[in-house]
């Protein structure tokens, strides 16, 4: 029983990381119908930039973890804006249906290679800002950093939701998501809203990067698998549902930790991907997604 609880807790923490990255996929999909397939690399860059400030790899630490986080968020936002400007905007302008897929993947590879050259290919430890002694909750051992992951992820999503509902700029983002042409008639610069959604998307990935880095290792290749699994979460939960990515993330996270323990770590990725295939076969819009009919 205790073991199961332990696996659940770890699964939830991992799942919330997936949820934060998947949330980023949703944000760009809502405003522009496009996705940043370099989300995993945005996460990795966030973690590496964070490590450069707060780790000892470049002669640091220069800043403590809490002061580093805002800088990483800012970096993530800028990185996302660059991806939109270089990779996505031209594809939207020419009404290319698929150009953005290749260009965001290409940018992701470029970012990964750059990171390998800047920081090397080895995985590096990331100093934890919280005690590394586990705390006991209902008999399970939980790392303080794992709690921090859950709190940080929920906090970020709540803040974005408040922004969307309360501020006129957030309302403009929602309006752009539901009808881009009509939003333009309101005087909303929808191109800028799309850039903003890319900034938000990479910012959330970078945030996920500095949340997870102290639990795992940091390295140029850390993002690829996380980005792909978060994409699976976005599909499982539904690309349009905020609740969907949280539930989908936790489902996948728990499926991985339990399979890893009860069956074999070699198979830990299988149940989540089977779930993905099932969802695609039975409810392609995702567990919580609304079915949309593409008008031609």
């Amino acid at each position: 029983m205790d073991i199961l609880l332990q696996l659940l807790m770890s699964g939830i923490a991992l799942g919330m990381i997936y949820a934060v990255i998947a949330f980023g996929y949703q944000s760009t999909f809502a405003t522009s119908g496009t996705l940043n397939f370099g989300q995993g690399e945005a996460l990795m860059l966030g973690a590496m930039v964070g490590l450069s400030f707060s780790g000892d790899i470049l002669g640091g630490p220069y800043l403590n973890y809490w002061l580093m986080v805002p800088l990483v968020l800012l970096f993530g936002a800028l990185q996302g804006a660059v991806v939109e400007f270089v990779g996505v905007r031209p594809a939207i302008k020419t009404k290319s249906e698929f150009g953005w897929i290749m260009s965001t993947i290409a940018l992701g590879i470029i970012f990964r290679n750059t990171a390998e050259n800047l920081w090397g290919r080895d995985d590096l430890p990331f100093p934890s800002p919280l005690p590394t002694e586990p705390i006991h909750i209902f008999g399970a051992n939980v790392l303080p950093m794992e709690l921090m992951v859950v709190v940080g992820a929920v906090l970020m999503m709540v803040l974005v939701e408040l922004f969307n509902r309360r501020s006129i700029y957030g309302k403009a983002v929602v309006a752009t998501s539901s009808d881009r042409d009509a939003a333009g008639l309101m005087g909303i610069n929808t191109g800028l809203v799309i850039t903003f959604s890319y900034a938000l998307s990479s910012m959330s990935a970078a945030f996920a990067g500095v949340l997870i880095a102290p639990i795992t290792l940091t390295g140029a290749s850390m993002g690829a698998v996380l980005g792909l699994k978060a994409f699976a979460v976005a599909i499982i939960g539904g690309l349009t549902s905020g609740l969907g990515v949280i539930v989908g993330g936790i489902l996948l996270g728990v499926a991985e930790t339990t399979t890893g323990f009860y069956i074999s770590t070699g198979y830990k990725d299988v149940p989540g991907l089977v779930l993905l295939l099932l969802v695609l076969a039975i409810k392609p819009s995702g567990l919580f997604g609304k079915t949309t009919i593409k008008k031609v």
């Binding site: 309302k171 929602v174 309006a175 539901s178 042409d181 009509a182 008639l185």
Partner: peptide, 30 residues
């Protein structure tokens, strides 16, 4: 369109095009 709106032209388009997931009040504020 957004620059033309800022210069002072409003267009109530064919097919209404209200923002369905937002409240009436939010539509007006937009």
């Amino acid at each position: 369109a957004h620059r033309i709106a800022r210069i002072g032209l409003a267009h109530s388009p064919e097919g209404r095009r209200v923002f369905p997931t937002q409240t009436v009040r939010d539509n007006l504020l937009l």
